[in-house]
Write a protein that binds this DNA or RNA. Sequence first.
RNA 1: GGCCCGGUGGUCAAGCGGUUAAGACUCCGCCCUUUCACGGCGGCAACACGGGUUCGAGUCCCGUCCGGGUCACCA
Length: 494
Amino acid sequence: MALDMKYFEEMEAKIPKGKVRTRFAPSPTGYMHVGNLRTALYTWLIARNAGGTFILRIEDTDQGRLIEGATEVIYRTLAECHLDHDEGPDVGGPVAPYIQSQRRDTYGKYARLLVEKGHAYYCFCEKADSGEDSGDFSRRLDPCWFLSPEEAQARVDSGEPYVIRQRIPEEGTTTFRDAIFGDITVENKTLDDQVLIKRDGLPTYNFANVIDDHLMGITHVVRGSEYLASAPKYNLLYEGFGWEVPTYVHCSPVMRDAQNKMSKRHGDPSYEDLKEQGFLTDAILNYVALLGWSPRGDIAEQEVFSLEELAKAFDLEGMSKSPAIFDIEKLTHFNALYLRAMSPEDFSKAAEPYIRQTVKDESLPAAEIAALLQARCEKLTDIPEKVSFFQSLPEYGVDLFTNKKSKTNPEVSKAMLEAAIPMLEGLPDWTQDAIHDGLVALAEQLEVKNATLMWPVRIAAAGQAVTPGGAVEICRILGRKETLRRLKLGLDKL
RNA sequence: GGCCCGGUGGUCAAGCGGUUAAGACUCCGCCCUUUCACGGCGGCAACACGGGUUCGAGUCCCGUCCGGGUCACCA
C-alpha cells in the first residue's frame, strides 16, 4: 500500500503561517482545576500579547475516560473567564476538525509516513514483551526492532495486531529548547521507543499532539512541566518529519502544598468550586496569573491586573521555573480588592441575593445594607451571616453592654437608652443625618463621649458585639418602629 | 533506582557580580473611629548546606542535602 503523498501536501498547504498561534488542548475530564485554568490563561495571553490566534482543541483520544458534559464545562469556563478562542470545535477554522477523535485517520497516515522515513516501526509484541522496566532502553530488547520493512509489512497485511513505535537513535544526545528552562540535553539511550499508534488504531497523546500542533500551525506549545521529560522525544518526532520545532513553554505546576499538586482527589477546588465559594472570576484570574508569572520593569510592583492589562504586560521572561503553592488567603485578599473596586451599584446588585438569604423582610433595604458590606466582606458568601441580625434580633446577654473603651457598663447603658429612646421617638425625620445629629447632640448634652452613647444603642439595636456599620446606620435601616422596639427590649434587660 | 528540573521570609515573589536583599499576603503593634472593617503608619520574618572562581557571590562553577517531574498501548 503506497503512501498518498498528495494528502500530505494538501495538509501542509492548509497550515496558516506567519502569526503566533497557540492552543489550549484539554482532555475532557469534566473538571477545570486551577492549574489547567492557569495554563489556559497563559496560552491565551501569549496569543493576545502577540496579536495572534488562540485555538481550542479537544483531546479525547482516550476512549475509556470520556465523561458526559465535560466539554461543556470547558466552553463555559473559558467563556466566563473571557478567554475567547478564534478557532475550535464550536467556531470552526481553517484546520478543522478540532476534536482529536475526528482526526483519527490523519494520525495513522502520518505514522506510516514516519515508518517509511525510518523513524518508526511496527511492533507486534504483547504489552509485557518489550521489557521496558529500568531506565535502560536498549533497542535490542524488542525483537520487532530488527524486523525488515518487508517482514513487518507482511505481518501487518496478514492482519496481525500491532502498535507503531517511535524509533529513537541508539547513540547520541538530543537537545531541545524551552522558553522558560532554556536548553536541555539528554542522552538518547535514556529515551524509550514510545508507542505512537495504539493497538486500537488511535494515536497516543504524545503523537497526536505533535501531529496536530504541526498541522494547526501552532507556534508556541504551552503545557505543564510534567511533559518536560518527553519533550526530547517530541523533538525527534519533529525532526523525523522534517518539521520546524515550535517554541516550548513548560509551566511549573500549581501545588496544594510542597509535596502535592492541586488535584480533585485531594479535594482541591476547581474553578467552579471557587466560584461557588464566593470568589469573583476576575479575582481568580488575577491571582492565578501571578502564581507563576510576575511583571517586570516599571510595572514590577503592580498586582492588580485586568485581562487587558495582562495581555499587554505578559512576557515569557517573567515566568517562574519553580512550582507555586496555591494560597487561598491571598486569593481571598484579591477577591476583597475586587469587591471594593466595584461601583456601589454593581456591588449592591451582586450582594443582594446573599443579603436576602437571611434578610427576608423586603422592607429592610438591600442597597443600604450592601453599602455597609462593601468594605467589610472578602467574599460574597461572608454576607448572609453578617446581616442576619437585621432580620431578627439575636439572643444576647447584658454583658455586651459593657465596653471598656467606650466607658460603658449596664448602669451607664441604662441611662443612655433611657435618654436615647425619647429623643429618637421625637425625631422629625428618620434619616441618616437626623439620627446621627440627634445622637451626637444628645451625647454632648449628657456630657459623655460619642462612643458611650453609641455603644449601648448599637448593642440594643443589633444584639451582637460586632456589626457591619455603626449605631446610626443600623437604626436607619431597621426603621424607627423596629429600632425603638429593640431599644426598649434592651432597656428591659438592664 | 536512572534521567530531567527546581531550591530568596510561613506563602507568592523582585533580584541577572557591588542593594541597608524590593513588594504583596498572613501575623503583631499604633493612628483614624460609633463596634468591626476600610484607610494610614510601623514591626517580626529569607538567600538550603559545603567547597571553589573573584577585590567582591543570593547572583557564576562543583559537590551534598531537600523537593518535584518522568520512566503506560493515560493524558
